[in-house]
Each structure stands twice: as structure tokens, then as C-alpha cells.
Write a protein that binds this DNA or RNA. Structure first.
Lengths: 175, 175
DNA sequence: GCATATGTAAAACGCTCGTTTTACATTGCA
DNA sequence: TGCAATGTAAAACGAGCGTTTTACATATGC
């Protein structure tokens, strides 16, 4: 089995559930079932491992929201939260935990947020069948971030609230 | 000067900028200008200090959004972010950093989020002049969380997007 | 004028951190 | 047959962690 894959999967789980700083390298080696020597050969450093985790999560999340309507976007988000739980955005959390001071992490977060914004713009455009008003794109993006973080305390109802709010905004843009 | 106040202020600054886990007690004593003996006499422990920081921030934030219209709510949020910067919600961040495993912190976060929801409900009620639809309250809450977290990457435009989206929803509820 | 409270400075506590190193086992290919 | 690659196990590295303790200074109020 691919050691790097096993490592990144275990690391994503631990970093997501307990935080980047709170997760020690020995917990990582135990969870991934490999020696620290092998871990460092594959990952380089803890920060690079987190960057690899974020790159993998970026791919996985963008695949999850490979849709062409705003309605489907929030349905996909609801599915993600049902499967993964609601602990807020791992990208923003890891950036905040490290004060934005670790380039590998800060860069991975910036790349993800840029890609997310472009993806949302594409979804809104496909839904409307026209070039999207930038304000509407920002609004849907805010609703996605809001659902992600409000779900920590509100649960799935946060996504439903975001979905219905977005529907109103899109309907109004169509009119 | 009040030592506890000085301590909590310094701690809020450091925890907010660098994270809870990444901030050491020696940095805290240096920033607060007191010995570790005094710090522990006043704060009890690092977790209790964080709880005190969150309690103080809760008071300060709720005072900032002491308004009676949704429009004013987002204006107040814009002011907060202009003054404090956009690093995401310190409550959610500190909870996530500690995996929700530290009761002092988890409790302070839960209390704040409950109070915030009630405050938003009151603002929507005052704005509409009627008992608010719970869905509309959730939607405004999602927009507040969304503006807070989207502002990390989008800047103040995230708040403007949330403000305009909320305006549409409130106008529709009034009709 | 002496106890009590409140503070500082600094060392020590035992433990964990991220990372590197030493020593050895297994495998696959020339 | 033997060398290079790839892995494990475990110790060691120096530093930093949160917290407590020891020793001492300075005020305040009876």
C-alpha cells in the first residue's frame, strides 16, 4: 500500500479533529503505522505534511462541489458536512493556528480559497447561463463560508438556511 | 493599574494573532509585564485564561452589535473587522484548536454562540417590528459567520456582500 | 512596628516537542 | 552473490512546554 497516501490520510484525520499544533509527530507515526524516519523521508517536515494534507483536501472538496447549479452546490456542501462533520474550514483554521507565518501552509490556504472562489463563480455562471455579477458571487461565497462555520453550532440547519438564502438571491438575479 | 485587565488584554492579543497553542506562557508574562507567579495567581491556568479572554471578548463584541436593525448589524460588523482585523472567529478557532476537549473553552464558546443567536434574533425582531421567522434568523446568522470568515480572504467586501444579501432577505420578509 | 498581602526574579519540575541519528532487517534487481 | 533501496525500532538531540517553588522586596492596615 502507498505509504504517502496512508500518511496523508491519517494526518488529515488527526489535524482536523485535534488541530495542527496539538497533534504530535508520535501520534502521526502511530496512526500512519510507520517509523518517524520513514515519515520524514516522505513528508519532509510537519509543515510540509500539513501542506500535503491541504492540497489533498482541496482536490477532494473541489471534486465534491463539481456541480452546475447553486442549489446543487449547497446540497453537495450538506453531503460533505454529513460525511465529514462540522468543525469549520480546515484551511482557515490551520492558517490561523500558525498565525499565517508558515509559508507552506499560508500558500496552500491562499491557493484553495482562490480556487474555491473561481469554482463558485463558475457555478453561478452555469446556473444563470450568463456572466455572473461579482457581487452575487461574493454573496454565494459568503453563504458557503457561513454555512460551513455556522454548522459547527447550528448543525445541518445552517446549510439549509444558506441554501434558501442563496435561492432567493439567484432568483432575484434571474429576474 | 488592574493586573488582571492587563493580562487578559495581552492574552487576547497574542491568542488572536498567533493562536492558543502557539502562544507560550513566557510570551504571556512578558507581554503582560508580570511574573509567572502573579499570572497564575490571577488566571489559574492557561485554559482558564483563555476562558477569561473569551468572556471579555463576548462582552465587547455584543456591545459592538447593540443595534436594532440588520443594516446596522452589518455596519457594526464592518467596524469591528476594520478595527480588529479579519482572522476568523476567535471562539470557533480556539474550540477547534483544542478539539473541543477543554471544558472551560468549549463552555465559553457555546455560551457566546447562544448569546449571539439570541442577539441576532432580537435585532431581526426589532427591524421587522414583529416576531421573527426562525429561518430568517438562521439566514442572518449564517451571513454574519460568513462575512466574518470570508473577510479573511475577501476583505471588507465580504461584509458588504453579506449586508446586501441580508437586505434582500429582510425586504422580502417585510413584504 | 509587625503581620499580611501582593508583587518580582529565577530556578526547577517532569514532560513533550519536532527532528536526526544509529543500528539493523528486508527486499529486488544486476 | 552482492549492492542499493527502503523499511523498522529506538535512542538521542536541544529546546520549549505549562506549572510550581524558593527566596526576597515592598506596601498597607491594625
Amino acid at each position: 500500500m502507498n505509504l504517502t497516501l496512508r500518511l496523508v490520510d491519517a494526518a488529515e484525520r488527526l489535524f482536523d479533529r485535534h488541530g495542527y499544533m496539538a497533534t504530535g509527530m508520535d501520534q502521526l507515526t502511530r496512526a500512519a503505522g510507520m517509523s518517524s524516519r520513514t515519515l520524514y523521508k516522505h513528508a519532509g517536515s510537519k509543515a510540509q505534511l500539513m501542506a500535503a494534507v491541504l492540497a489533498e483536501r482541496d482536490r477532494r472538496f473541489l471534486r465534491q462541489i463539481e456541480v452546475s447549479s447553486v442549489e446543487a452546490l449547497f446540497a453537495a456542501l450538506a453531503g460533505w458536512i454529513r460525511d465529514e462533520g462540522a468543525r469549520g474550514c480546515l484551511f482557515l483554521r490551520s492558517r490561523a493556528e500558525t498565525g499565517g507565518d508558515i509559508p507552506e501552509i499560508a500558500d496552500a490556504v491562499a491557493a484553495h480559497k482562490t480556487a474555491l472562489r473561481q469554482r463558485v463563480a463558475g457555478i453561478v455562471a452555469a446556473d444563470l447561463g450568463a456572466a455572473p455579477d461579482p457581487l452575487l458571487v461574493d454573496q454565494v461565497l459568503v453563504l458557503v463560508e457561513g454555512a460551513t462555520h455556522a454548522a459547527v453550532t447550528l448543525g445541518p440547519e445552517a446549510v439549509e438556511a444558506a441554501r434558501s438564502a442563496a435561492a432567493v438571491l439567484v432568483a432575484q438575479a434571474r429576474a
